[in-house]
Nucleic acid binder design. Sequence first.
RNA 1: GGCGCUGUAGCUCAAUUGGUCAGAGUCCCGGACUGUCGAUCCGGAGGUUGCGGGUUCGAGUCCCGUCAGCGUCGCCA
Length: 595
Amino acid sequence: MLRTHTCGELNKEHIGQTATLCGWVDSIRDFGGVTFIDLRDRYGRTQVVFNPDARSEVIELASKLRNEHVIKVEGIVRQRPDGQFNHKLSTGEIEFVVNDLQVLNECKTPPFVPGQKDVPGEDLRLKHRYLDLRREKMLQTLQLRSRIIKTMRDYCADNDFIDIETPILGRSTPEGARDYLVPSRVFKGKFYALPQSPQIYKQIMMIAGYDRYIQVARCFRDEDLRADRQPEFTQLDLEMSFVDSDDVIGMIDGLMKRLAKDILGLDIQLPLPRLTYDEAMARYGHDAPDLRFGMQIVDCTEIARDCGFGVFKSTAESGNFVRGINASGAASKFSRKRIDELTAIVKDDFGAKGLAWFRCEEDGTLFSPVAKFFSEEHLAEIKSKMDAQPGDLLLFIADTWEVSCKSLYGIRKRMGAELELYDPSQMHFSWIVEFPMFEQVAESDQWSAMHHPFTAPRDQDLKDLDSDPGKTRAKAYDLIINGYEAGGGTIRIHDSGIQQKVFGLLGLDAESAQERFGFLLDALKYGAPPHGGIALGIDRVVMLFAGLDNIRDCIAFPKTQKAYDMMTEAPNLVEPIQLEDLGIKVSKTNANSSP
RNA sequence: GGCGCUGUAGCUCAAUUGGUCAGAGUCCCGGACUGUCGAUCCGGAGGUUGCGGGUUCGAGUCCCGUCAGCGUCGCCA
């Protein structure tokens, strides 16, 4: 080792000792005579002092030091003078007096310095990620990530889970997200697919008798990115045999309790609250609601049915819904202009036809541009149903169930943040359960799997599989943290007969099901135990535990919104010979898309 | 693919309604300074305002296109 200690290690216990430190120059304070340098590494910062009585070569060399040079210093640990302790540093009671200095490597003038107050633009950070990762915040987040994953692994190991790796080069399966494909050189014209998740492999492991499996698994989905979505991401993938929903949920409850305690020092109550899918949609308009605040959706369709406002009345009469939320105390904070902005959002983003609003005045009356279409009685009914108090703002969407859900969810989410209805550091864990097995494919009588085609229906719903597929509820559960889907799982079908039936409903005939999933269907016939599991989005969990608002900041080398790696410039062109080897001819290139 | 925000010095940002608006801090270069820890002080260098058109007497500012980053809808079993 070039060093005897790290930059976060020395303290008053070491006073008088000689030591050698290595690190990056974090800042320089040159007084002509004495010069101070903060030396930084992963572990901390140590103030390094160059005194005027040092050897002249050392002083000469020190005067040439610049930010981010990598140096090695030998010297003596000394207590700082009285009143000059730096309580922000773990090493703040001592300083390191240099006898000898060696510049291990210089640093070009960097585009930005890790210690600067203002965070540089994200494109610059991604291009020079090696500099960005030196920033304290990035270091903390990646350390937090490491601790979270370790806690997950420890917890699973304590519960007899076995960690098994599954292939990255797999087979493309229908449905789901777009696959990332890898061409085969040997089988020209054929492709591997990178796993969207290790779903099928872990089920096979159950059939093989490895009754508790986990994997910290990299997953790949070629879909458009979001703040909480990257093309490659990491899951804690977990599967158990001889279990039902409650067993898996209970196992994850325990994991969340341990994570909250070990990582955040929080005590959370178990069992975590559960909400059915139907309740979540009715109250919050979404299957991953942020439950840190109320502002629940209220259905006013019945009042609307016989009111004088044509939009409301016709909506109710056509079998659609008039629902609203009470933005408590928002009347003064939301000007006419801000309401217009909300209206634009629900129209543009969710296809709503409009946004009706009422303001509850000081005297308790409801003011609204459309109030004139309502009788006193109807206004009173609305006020009572919405529990409107003076200063409240009521917002209504009259539309289909789907549009009203999306719109009100969107508004609620925005208002909750803007009105500061919750403490951003608060953590709320919950489960959404009893998802529908199927959802109707738009404008057709075709069904698609809400989760995936191996999801088991609830036992009491088996009878509906033939008669009323839309009514069947699945043994599916999503873990929600602060309005984010942090994980989701299901109990799987372990009966090949039921599996065939579900495939049938999904429009997969026996032949094509056999063609695509034959190996799984076969395996199910060779003694498959009842089993189920879950996958947690580790990047999202880290994001939430770190209090961040995007997962790029919890990933060492993330990609941009176009799935581009600004540092390595991937994806990129390959040599013609490589394509030739693969038997691939590129017919269309996007010359405009740089670089 | 749609909608929106952003793009000005290496970096972070500023620049009334289109009119000495090319500016600050920091970084960089040179100098001063023996106790700072966001050191301080003096001096200097540094920009074709992302790119391409257009409107105008005049564009960083307005319009159109385009590129990039971000947010979002679609999409993500």
